[in-house]
């Protein structure tokens, strides 16, 4: 390798580390969103690098919708213990009390209450002035226009038409009381960058990304894993074992699996390169309407 030039992955890593340090240095109460997915795993790895030998100087927040895959929760707790970071979990107790679930209330209302509202509750309760997330600009069109330091008003809403100009790597981190910042250190990474980085840095990820026989049902072309007994089965529907994996992780009733034999990282990367669908396709909540992500973000979704 050229000793005077960084490879593009090294450059992306350094850029993300710089952003994470800027958060730690500029905000009173930062928090890092931990969704347990591969992007979160990369973010966590970058945060450990950014502050080494210090521990990560802010807590990690997981918004638990109560419908996450069981393997995700196990992975979360194991990872927290192994790296010794401060983990905060939050669940919208109003939603739990009202028995909100994706089956009876629909994906959009469920997401709104258990994810978006829950996130707002957790951020307000923690009085966090900066929340770090693992979103990337290549994921979705409105994300492609979002700043690295993305300003939120006192009700956590995004105003896409009035974003602060962001020049060089000189980030405006200043806030008025009640306002907050969402910070996206891996904005400039692509899905392929994330996977190649996981591979070259040997970062642990949830086993759900790897193909294995799993019990699934097929609904309107989407494979849903029967992760526990709460998934209501339609008349005549029986779960069957199929070798599947997930490209993206979320709430199990809302996350589609793909048929795949990719059981290790190299196979995943090869499969991904050959594939012709974008990773968010497996997410049922984005496709509700044109501009639905932008709308969700204006309302405070990550």
């Amino acid at each position: 390798m050229d000793l005077n030039r960084l490879t593009h992955l090294q450059a992306l890593e350094a850029e993300s580390i710089e952003i994470l340090r800027e958060v730690a240095a500029s905000f009173e109460r930062p928090v890092m969103m931990y969704s347990i997915g591969k992007d979160s795993s990369v973010l966590l790895h970058l945060a450990r690098k950014a502050f080494y030998p210090s521990k990560i100087p802010f807590p990690l927040l997981h918004v638990d919708t109560t419908f996450k895959f069981a393997e995700m929760i196990a992975f979360r707790d194991k990872t927290a213990e192994e790296y010794g970071f401060d983990l905060i979990t939050h669940t919208n107790q109003d939603g739990v009390r009202d028995g909100i679930n994706p089956f009876d209330h629909g994906s959009s209302r469920y997401t709104d209450i258990m994810k978006t509202a829950a996130l707002r509750q957790a951020l307000t309760a923690g009085q966090y002035d900066a929340a770090i997330g693992g979103a990337r600009r290549d994921e979705e069109k409105s994300r492609a226009k979002e700043r690295v330091f993305s300003h939120r008003n006192a009700s956590h809403a995004w105003d896409p038409k009035n974003q602060r100009p962001e020049l060089w790597r000189t980030f405006n981190t200043r806030l008025n009381p009640g306002e907050s910042m969402r910070v996206f250190p891996i904005s400039n990474w692509t899905e392929l960058d994330v996977w190649t980085y996981i591979y070259s840095e040997q970062i642990p990820i949830v086993p759900l990304y790897f193909a294995r026989p799993r019990p699934v049902v097929e609904r309107s072309g989407t494979l849903i894993m029967v992760d526990d007994e709460r998934l209501p089965l339609n008349p005549g529907e029986t779960p069957r074992e199929e070798v599947v994996r997930f490209r993206t992780l979320g709430c199990y009733p809302l996350t589609g699996a793909i048929r795949s034999d990719a059981a290790d990282l190299p196979s995943i990367i090869m499969e991904m390169q050959a594939s012709r669908t974008s990773e968010r396709e497996g997410r049922l909540i984005d496709s509700d309407s044109v501009g639905s992500m932008e709308k969700k973000k204006q309302e405070g979704y990550f």
């Binding site: 600009r137 409105s142 492609a144 038409k161 974003q163 904005s187 932008e294």
Partner: peptide, 24 residues
């Protein structure tokens, strides 16, 4: 349409904000 991401941009058919795209 691939790059005009914001609803207002699609409505007005113009680009308002910087959009970042990735290819290799």
């Amino acid at each position: 349409l691939l790059v005009d991401g914001l609803v207002a941009e699609r409505e007005q058919g113009i680009t308002i904000d910087v959009a970042y795209r990735f290819f290799s």
